[in-house]
Design a protein around this nucleic acid. Structure first.
Lengths: 210, 210
DNA sequence: GGTTCGATGTATCGGGCCGATACATCGGAT
DNA sequence: ATCCGATGTATCGGCCCGATACATCGAACC
């Protein structure tokens, strides 16, 4: 999960840990505000050991390379390796049950621009199915045995059910968008005036890689 | 977090692990569909070691006690101890920053019926503040630098922002409900007919404990 | 009568991720 | 000249997860 995200970010450009953490925080914004260093550094170590990433640009203090942007000190800049790119492509196309968990799904979604449409649909539908199951569970819970619970527990369950229903709707819109080749646009609910400027969201080229 | 939930459930009645897991799954419905045994059993061990819970009703096979409900076998029934009840009361009233995390907040909320109003308000407001901060972060992100991201990443952030806004609204309703002494009722959006049977949610007595 | 099968039930293991904590250095403000 | 906050790397203990391994009970099926 974190592995996937790191590989994805390093594909875009080389970075050191601190920077990586920040990018992670914005790219995955909604999910986890910020990754813990207690996770990040061990993961970097692991990835390096596996050969997916490597250190680069050590700024050896005796060389006069281009000095990056800020000051150079003990910073360790990581870059992705060829094997790392392969690994990332693998992860990108893979879609197992784990992929549909809250966190994992969101990370995958954040890198959808790098996937082909078939994969996107597979993941979107898998996620939908999972959320639907959850929704059904909550519906049953609320239908029977409402009297077993106190008002707060009930409210919690109602709220959860609500969230499920909303997410299913959201997923359905996205799926429809994919099928029609529209992408993740926002064509509906433009609040006022015309549909003029463009229901056409930016077209991100390359629908396929590898 | 799990400790808190287990203590809370065992306050209601003694149970064995398997049962506990199920109850956890319904009581905390929206949050985590089911707790892993890899978490549950070690936690039970830990709680027992700490003295908060104890084994009970071993059904010694040589005694002719009341045989519970189903068959008796190697099942281990746990009950909460006096110290455990104290511990639970502590956790119930406590509200630190950890309390406002997604998971922790939901668990606390599930046991709100056992808290006093002041605590409920404290937690609700703490949570609101946290979600608001997150919301502001996302708003900034979307306001500036929208062009840095591809359409999918943007959509993810929009969706996240949406969820934040909705949760803040939800929390605000709950806070208003608490202040007016109404509790977590559903007075608005009763879809049709009368408000006859009882806009009055069940009144759970004892607004205070300890 | 025997077997198979799904629900019940307890338990461990490796691993991912977290929060707290510790250091060290750089740039700028006081 | 010194202090401080942002930058930067790193470890530690601990929670929780998924996978896995067992063992037993009741019922259904042959």
């Amino acid at each position: 999960m974190l592995e996937f995200a790191i590989l994805g970010l390093l594909t875009e450009s080389a970075m050191h840990g601190y920077e990586l953490r920040k990018e992670l925080g914005t790219k995955l914004g909604p999910i986890r505000a910020a990754i813990s260093y207690g996770t990040l550094y061990p993961t970097l170590k692991r990835l390096q050991l596996a050969g997916w990433i490597a250190q680069a640009g050590e700024t050896p203090a005796t060389a006069d390379e281009v000095p990056a942007l800020t000051s150079r000190r003990g910073r360790i800049v990581y870059r992705i390796t060829a094997e790392g790119k392969e690994r990332f492509a693998e992860l990108l196309a893979h879609a197992g049950p784990e992929t549909y968990d809250d966190a994992a799904f969101n990370v995958h979604f954040a890198f959808f621009a790098r996937t082909d449409r078939a994969t996107r649909l597979r993941i979107l539908e898998g996620r939908r199915r999972k959320v639907e199951e959850r929704r059904e569970g909550l519906r049953n819970l609320l239908a029977r045995a409402s009297e077993r619970f106190d008002a707060y527990t009930l409210e919690l369950q109602r709220h959860g059910l609500d969230a499920c229903e909303r997410e299913v709707r959201w997923l359905e819109e996205l799926i429809a968008g994919e099928r029609s080749g529209r992408g993740p646009g926002r064509p509906p609910n433009l609040p006022l005036s015309a549909e003029s400027t463009g229901g056409e969201q930016e077209r991100h080229g390359r629908d396929d890689l590898s």
